[in-house]
């Protein structure tokens, strides 16, 4: 199995030395994110997130299936992550690496387990028919901090997504095409976002946001905090690494909240822009007989 190329000793030592002088290789502040861009595709439910050189594409889809036998009143919601060899030669198809497992687990915990999507609203006929919503996350380019970018992409894709409208008449379920009835958005309860802190130094005393790939290879520990803009924490994952002072972690959570508010505003703003772009002038414009040409 190919291994990721290790950074040289010079680079490792310099990254740490520079961080101790409050310097980062790309000239950012320690608690500053790289430029974040969010674009939506022509289809509903496609979100493309660029964070510096990291790029994530998320696509939401829905289909009608039979619900799980033990949960007849719930719909099905799954998140599938895929790190392909296009991202890095160290990733192989059908053989998930630790990074991939952790990423998909974190997304599950943040988005699914926190109840961001109301799965009960996906139920069509109890025990017989329900919507199965699936989000596919593709990492197109990996330059560190996949988690935060992937989480933002998943949330943006789901909030942008529209599922076909349905109706029940006399025990007969009808699914309408977009031409017949305008698709409807999912029942979305709150938007959780991930903020990952990386720790450097002998005792993890240096906390850094949005680490690049080089910094991720050098760090002594990391902690992912998921919360929504109301400050409700969905999960905190500190997977191994050097122990970190509890008071410092509290401080990290406070900074994470301000970042999450920024993400939330960004997604709201981009969704509003996208809606405006799609809106051709409302009902009257649609009824118009005039030809654009």
């Amino acid at each position: 199995m190919p291994r990721e190329a290790e950074p040289s000793l010079n680079e490792k030592q310099f990254v740490i030395q520079a961080l101790q002088e409050n310097l980062r290789l790309d000239g950012r502040e320690l608690d500053q994110y790289r430029p974040l861009e969010l674009t939506f595709g022509d289809q509903y439910g496609v979100a493309d997130v660029t964070l510096g050189n990291t790029r994530i594409l998320a696509k939401a889809t829905a289909e009608v299936t039979v619900p799980y036998a033990d949960r007849p009143l719930d719909g099905i919601f799954t998140i599938a992550t895929e790190l392909s060899p296009m991202t890095s030669p160290a990733f192989e198809v059908n053989r998930p690496t630790e990074t991939e497992v952790l990423l998909s687990r974190l997304l599950e915990k943040t988005v699914r387990r926190s109840g961001a999507l109301d799965t009960e609203s996906l139920c069509l006929v109890a025990g017989q028919k329900c919507w199965s919503v699936r989000v596919d996350v593709h990492a197109l380019s990996h330059d560190g901090n996949l988690t935060d970018a992937a989480c933002l992409a998943v949330v943006a894709a789901l909030r942008h997504f529209r599922k076909p409208d349905t109706s029940m008449e006399g025990g007969r379920l009808t699914v309408y095409t977009p031409a017949e009835r305008e698709p409807v958005p999912l029942s979305w309860l709150h938007s959780p976002f991930c903020v990952t802190w990386s720790f450097f130094g002998d005792e993890g005393e240096l906390a850094v946001l949005d680490a690049t790939w080089l910094e991720e290879q050098v760090r002594v520990g990391s902690c992912t905090i998921s919360l929504n803009k109301h400050g409700e924490i969905c999960q905190i994952a500190k997977l191994g690494g050097t122990p970190v002072d509890a008071v410092a972690l509290l401080q990290c959570t406070n900074v994470a909240l301000t970042k999450v508010k920024e993400f939330s505003d960004l997604v709201d703003q981009k969704l509003a822009e996208d809606l405006k772009r799609r809106d051709k002038g409302g009902f009257m414009a649609e009824l118009r007989a005039e030809n654009d040409r």
Partner: peptide
């Protein structure tokens, strides 16, 4: 490209 200097600030600046 390897950039060497006593000051880390200079190294970051030249590298960028």
């Amino acid at each position: 490209v390897w950039v060497g200097s006593e000051s880390a600030r200079t190294v970051v600046l030249v590298g960028r």
